[in-house]
Design a protein around this nucleic acid. Sequence first.
RNA 1: UCCUGGGUAGCUCAAUGGGCAGAGCGGGUGGCUGUUAACCACCAGGUUGCAGGUUCGAGUCCUGCCCCAGGAGCCA
Length: 463
Amino acid sequence: MEAKWVSVKQAYEQPIGSLLKVRGWVRSRRDSKGVSFIELNDGSRFKSLQIVVEAGVVPEELLRQVTTGACIEAIGTLVESPAPKQPVELKLHQLHLYGTADPETYPMQKKGHSFEYLREIAHLRVRGNTFGAVFRVRNALAYAIHQFFQERDFLYVHTPIITGSDCEGAGAMFRVTTLDLENPPRTPDGRIDFSQDFFSRPTYLTVSGQLEAEALALAFGKVYTFGPTFRAENSNTPRHLAEFWMVEPEMAFYELEDNANLAEEFLKYIIGYVLNHCEEDLEFFHQRIDNTVLETLQHVAESPFERITYTDAIRILQAASRSWEFPPVWGNDLQTEHERYLTEEYFKKPVIVTDYPKEIKAFYMRLNDDGRTVRAMDVLVPRVGEIIGGSQREERYEVLLQRIRELGLNEHDYWWYLDLRKYGTAPHSGFGLGFERMLMYVTGMKNIRDVIPFPRTPGNAEF
RNA sequence: UCCUGGGUAGCUCAAUGGGCAGAGCGGGUGGCUGUUAACCACCAGGUUGCAGGUUCGAGUCCUGCCCCAGGAGCCA
């Protein structure tokens, strides 16, 4: 009888007595008199499979090389386990060693490591419990995001990674060039001549696909992007990456209320999905990373979000009986301490803040009739702060042009964006979700560098 | 980028007022045991982040630099 090749996850679902073949990496080996136990994990689920090696089944020389980190193939019979820690185990018949891992130098040990240390071995940390769980949840979250939008007839669109427009002049951008940096071509007045560059103009890595997504929304109605974005800011915090993934839906005929409704429904959906599909991994996060994670997620999935205007938020903050490092003043952006107070202490749930002063928001946000505020919305969640930022877009040509000029932007750079208001304009809205921040929220992980496989931060692009 | 705290064995950390650099874990060897963060004994393991300075003597004090973390700003 041919052994059936299955994953560890599948192995747990096979009938007792099945002849199985599993392949994976050794977490540990424990020897007893006459019997050895191998913990085998292949990433298919949190739990490993215990492989029981009775004396004489495998040459001792071979078994000695089955150490933490080694890669093996095990063929054996699935049997009930006499010990309480696992329902089944694999009684070994044959063992093949794919690759050894010298225990003297293999950097992953059986016991706990600091996350700081594990970042230095990002290529190996994925074989451990925590990062296995993180990246399985990451996968589930990505899948849930696509499913949410696909079920609602959104079109998944792909906006450019390399762009010539610096979007909102917001974050610092990474330049993309093929010019010889040692000796770049110069214009007569001594500046670098980008007309000789690959794209015949200065180009950058995108900081957002929003502007292009708007163009697509004004053809397809409802679209979303899900791709990498780049910020060259020198931000050294547990919440910032130079390269991160963003989800950006954009909807024609949606006003701010529709936008907020969608954002709330969206967050509840993807959290609900993860709660239903990643139980084992979430249980680990709950026990070992953050013991509030499960109840927080359940709470968010069930209870309605609070919605307030920026102006009301300032009033609440000013009335709070506590001191601020930055006293809240109408016209200033909300500080981290303000956001946390609102979502963690005052409301104790996610809060959607809308209608911010125009001075602190981007040029493309729709101006309210009061002339002072714009139709912006930020979704704030406990522990992470701002997780979604969005707005109703300014669809009126003259108003948009006026805003571009007010802010000293070059209107010629936005010719096509203005065209969208000139030809068949429509009210429309959208928002952006930082995928890694969402993942931090869902897993309870404290540092964004630990929810992306190979983080890019200032001074760090190893791997 | 600013503020604060760090950098000592493979990892996590100790080391009085400047006076012989240590422990736990991990690793090796041996023992014991259907084990599961296994247990017991022994052994190996160090350019104290880098460069300079003060001193009879520096992990410890001084100067400069590098790196890491947390907080802030920017933001998602």
